[in-house]
Design a protein around this nucleic acid. Structure first.
Length: 887
RNA sequence: GGGAGCAUAGCUCAGUUGGUUUAGAGCAUCUGCCUUACAAGCAGAGGGUCCGCGGUUCGAACCCGUGUGCUCCCA
């Protein structure tokens, strides 16, 4: 069969993926084998595959394919997340383009559009994962809004509510005035922005409440909230203000009389040391407001526009009423102007401050008081102390382990989790209100009527809000096996807890921590044994990938250009565990070149097929080569096993790459390669094919397509590589490996000497070997002469005059050639080496002559130093002989 | 403001309880080769104040202190 010039990735990918699916290799059902379970971090249902997914899922596929080849029952569960905020934003955007406003729709109409959108775009991302070669059990595809899943979320809400872990409360929340919803702390991104610090004067009042002329200056970045001020706060130890504590001041424009109070919270050296308190619009102010029992006056509505609704007690002036409906940023300007007109702005300073923005819409968030549902996290953790201990004692092992600190630090400072979102797309909160405002919680209205018959006949209205997306995805490792909706079923009993979770560091708190919480609360055990955290994929300049920068490559185009295996190789070879990854397309090129290298090695072996010798003779040289590679392969298999166990995937791949490219192709194949059109020994051919198969097996989890293709082209196979079980690893024989290393060193040193002396590759040499072990060299002299282009090999006990001398360990090699040697260059080279050796020997001698070293160091260390000394001395002797021979 | 981490070749990174030749790999660079598997290749080479300073030790890239620079998380 004629093989194409290069490996054609696209054809192999389509062919093998379809074949694997048809054979059902990726499907798993419980049996007597040990399970190896991974649940995919569910991507957003309407998302498309990006580099982060590529990294993440390649890693998962490597782990799951390797487990499958190790005889485990490998189960990798796919699925998607309904992603309430992101998806709703997309649907709203789509409707806007069609000229439909969300506000003109009923909830049911909107949800119909959303489902339509989901049916159309949902799952595209899953198709893309197939392109990457991901071996997911597609029969198990889950979605966080599937009927059972939805019901399990309801069940958990009701359960936690019943346990007193969920409460409803008016709290200060992060409010996104664009999407009109509360955000959890984790959804707020702090950005540094240039703003201004305004110094505003509040006039002191006399006994009659009239302005006394004197004033108190407050520095603020948010003058638009001034009309909600309820107090001025100073530090009680601040001598500048002690006489003012207890006095009253007037709020500019609205002329509300407010007190000056004292609290240690206030930093004396920020601004003027006096802080205005606006409990409705700032978290810290709110905290102070509660402490000092102050009223909160809300002056901004849900969309961040001014409202006078709560100002009626202040008899608002026409000026104040003119602000109604003005957006917060315009309002800031207006109020500054108006206070300025009252001559109450003392000065303005430039200020760099941190501003919270919404992760989804980018809008500057407001702190806003609103009625939300919360989970009492302290209590939750107190009920399940394993949430903390499991991570600290490695019951759940984090890779890299440094994230354990981050986890425990976060857990130690945990805040209650706001789980309600003012959206429609998602699980609607299962709470109903009667006309009197009483709240009833139940899995459904029917359930409510059954549980609390007194509610029958009441006018009930369900809570408008939905639950935070993470309130459903924290159940993922259980509910993909229907562990919540159908407790105790065969799947959950077999697959849970899952083996490894692979996810991004950025969702450690959002998701990983909460799955651990849910795992202990609802399954009574850890949700996974190991967590492998990936870093962020950045571009080669270290920038985050973003649409604005346009530095986010189109993954499918990359797969088309380089092939899926090359993409997998490229992303894995440059991905240190847990660190950010600088993505560079040249890594993919390396992957494609590797494919090609494999392909060419295959072509060589296939060429031999027609020329296998009839007899069964095997030369000593070839026996040596085979024996060496057998052991080298065993050595690397053991190394890879350790690396995989430590989740050092990138290093495992590099190790395999080097084994194939360097040891197999550059050394082994060259050693056993017959001369032009010469027959190949039967043993060489058969063993080489077997080696090649083992190499493909080792590589398969990383590069599944090219390995499967080559495996089948090597010879007729009875099964597929994808499910071929690994043979147990055999310990390598060290002496054979050492001999191989010596041979490589000799060849490299001789080639280097040839190169330095500008001997043309085609020019043959006479090689003289001076060694104490000529028998060892006789077995491999054919390899040496082939590799360094020697016409003849001699053994000698003496220096060979007018030759290039090369020393490797205790052995000396003399190169004789027709070409005249450049003795000056040779001499310079030898002198340089001599100086290096002498420097080295001096440092070793210094160590050995140090009595304290000899007394304290371990015997084997001293022994080693002695060996270094004798090796170096021998080497110096050789160099000196070489120098003498040149003169 | 609080916490965590990082700094090794031009770039990206290894370097296991402190001792395995005065530090390794891949990529990039340079030199020579179109050698019948492979120029998407082959053979070789050069390149480092292990961030600075101080300390512990017989011995430090590794441990301790300190300074500098960077990154991330939290407020």
């Amino acid at each position: 069969m004629e093989l194409s010039k290069n490996f054609i990735a696209g054809e192999a990918e389509a062919k093998w993926y379809a074949h694997w699916l048809e054979k059902g290799y990726f499907n798993s059902t419980p049996d007597e084998r040990e399970p190896y379970t991974i649940v995919i971090p569910p991507p957003n249902v309407t998302g498309v595959l990006h580099m982060g997914h590529c990294l993440n899922n390649t890693i998962q596929d490597i782990l799951i394919r390797r487990a499958r080849m190790q005889g485990k029952n490998a189960c990798w569960v796919p699925g998607t997340d309904h992603a309430s905020i992101a998806t709703e934003a997309k649907v709203v955007g789509m409707l806007r383009e069609r000229g439909i406003a969300k506000s003109s729709l009923t909830r049911e109409e909107f949800l119909a559009y959303a489902w339509e959108w989901k049916e159309k775009y949902g799952g595209i991302i899953l198709q893309q994962l197939k392109k990457l070669g991901c071996s997911l059990d597609w029969n198990r595809t889950s979605f966080t809004m599937d009927k059972d899943y939805y019901q399990s979320v309801m069940k958990v809400f009701v359960d936690l509510h019943g346990k007193g872990l969920i409460y409803r409360g008016k709290r200060m929340v992060n409010w996104d005035p664009v999407s009109l919803t509360a955000l959890s702390d984790e959804e707020v991104i702090f950005k540094e922005v240039d703003s201004k610090l305004y110094y505003v004067k509040y006039l002191l009042t006399d006994k009659d409440g009239q302005p006394s002329g004197a004033g108190l200056t407050v520095a603020t970045t948010r003058p638009e909230t001034i009309l909600g001020d309820i107090a001025i706060c100073v530090n009680p130890t601040d001598e500048r203000y002690t006489n003012l504590i207890g006095k009253n001041v007037l709020v500019p424009i609205i002329n509300r009389v407010i007190p000056v109070i004292a609290d240690e919270y206030v930093t004396m050296d920020f601004g003027t040391g006096a802080l205005k308190i606006t409990p409705a619009h700032d978290k810290n102010d709110n905290m102070l407001g509660i402490k000092h029992n102050l009223k909160a006056i809300d002056t901004l509505d849900a969309s961040g526009k001014f409202t006078a609704e709560n100002l009626m007690e202040d008899n608002p002036s026409e000026l104040v009423l003119s602000y109604v409906g003005v957006d917060r940023f315009a309002l800031r300007k207006k109020i500054v102007e108006d206070i300025s007109a009252l001559q109450l702005i003392e000065k303005t300073e430039e200020y760099k401050g941190q501003v919270g923005t919404s992760e989804r819409t980018g809008a500057v968030i407001e702190h806003r008081l609103s009625l939300q549902w919360f989970i009492d996290m302290q209590k939750f953790i107190a009920n399940n102390p394993e949430i903390l201990s499991a991570v600290s004692d490695d019951t759940i092992a984090f890779h890299p382990a440094k994230l354990k600190n981050t986890y425990s630090h976060w857990m130690g400072n945990i805040k209650d989790w706001c789980i309600s979102r003012q959206l429609w797309w998602g699980q609607q909160i299962p709470a109903w209100y009667d006309e009197a405002g009483n709240v009833y919680v139940a899995e459904s209205l029917e359930a409510l009527h059954v549980n609390q018959p007194e509610t029958i006949g009441l006018q009930l209205k369900q809570d408008e809000d939905v639950l935070d997306t993470w309130f459903s995805s924290w159940l993922w490792p259980m509910e993909v096996f229907k562990g919540i909706s159908h407790p105790g079923n065969d799947d959950i009993a077999y697959y849970y807890p899952s083996t490894t979770l692979v996810t991004g560091q950025d969702i450690l708190f959002f998701w990983v921590a909460r799955m651990i919480m849910a795992g202990y609360e609802y399954a009574g055990q850890r949700p996974f044994k190991d967590v492998y955290f990936t870093g962020m994929v950045r571009d080669k300049l270290g920038r985050k990938m973003s649409k604005q920068l346009g530095n986010s490559p189109d993954l499918l185009a990359l797969i088309d250009n380089y092939g899926a295996d090359a993409v997998r190789f490229g992303i894995m070879v440059s991905s240190p565990a847990g660190n950010d990854l600088m993505f560079d397309e040249s890594a993919l090129e390396q992957g494609r070149n590797f494919n090609n290298k494999l392909w060419n090695a295959l072509k060589l072996v296939k060429m031999w097929e027609a020329r296998v010798a009839d007899d069964n003779d095997t030369s000593d040289t070839n026996s040596f080569a085979i024996n060496w590679f057998t052991n080298r392969l065993n050595e690397v298999k053991a190394e890879v096993e350790i690396l995989m166990h430590q989740f050092r995937l990138s290093e495992a791949l590099k190790t395999i790459y080097s084994l194939i490219w360097d040891d197999f192709c550059s050394w082994y194949l060259e050693w056993v390669k017959p001369g032009f059109e010469q027959p190949v020994e039967a043993a060489v051919f058969n063993t080489t094919v077997a080696f090649f198969e083992e190499l493909m097996q080792l590589l398969h989890p990383f590069m599944p397509f090219v390995s499967e293709e080559i495996y089948h082209l090597l010879r007729q196979q009875s099964t597929d590589l994808c499910v071929t079980q690994n043979a147990p690893t055999i310990a390598a024989a060290v002496p054979v490996l050492q001999q191989g290393e010596l041979l490589k060193q000799v060849i490299s040193a001789l080639r280097d000497a040839r190169n330095k002396n500008q001997l043309k590759p085609k020019e043959t040499i006479q090689l003289h070997i001076q060694t104490e072990d000529s028998a060892a060299f006789k077995a491999i002299e054919n390899i040496i002469s082939k590799q360094v282009n020697a016409a003849a090999v001699f053994y000698t006990n003496d220096t060979v005059a007018n030759s290039i001398v090369v020393a490797v360990e205790q052995n000396k090699f003399y190169i004789e050639s027709e070409q005249k040697l450049d003795s000056a260059a040779l001499k310079a080279d030898l002198l340089k080496d001599l100086a290096h050796q002498q420097g080295f020997i001096a440092s070793v001698q210094k160590k050995l002559s140090n009595e304290k070293f000899v007394q304290n160091a371990k015997p084997e260390v001293i022994e080693l130093e002695r060996k270094k000394l004798s090796d170096a001395a021998a080497r110096i002797k050789t160099i000196e002989e070489g120098l003498a021979g040149l003169n």
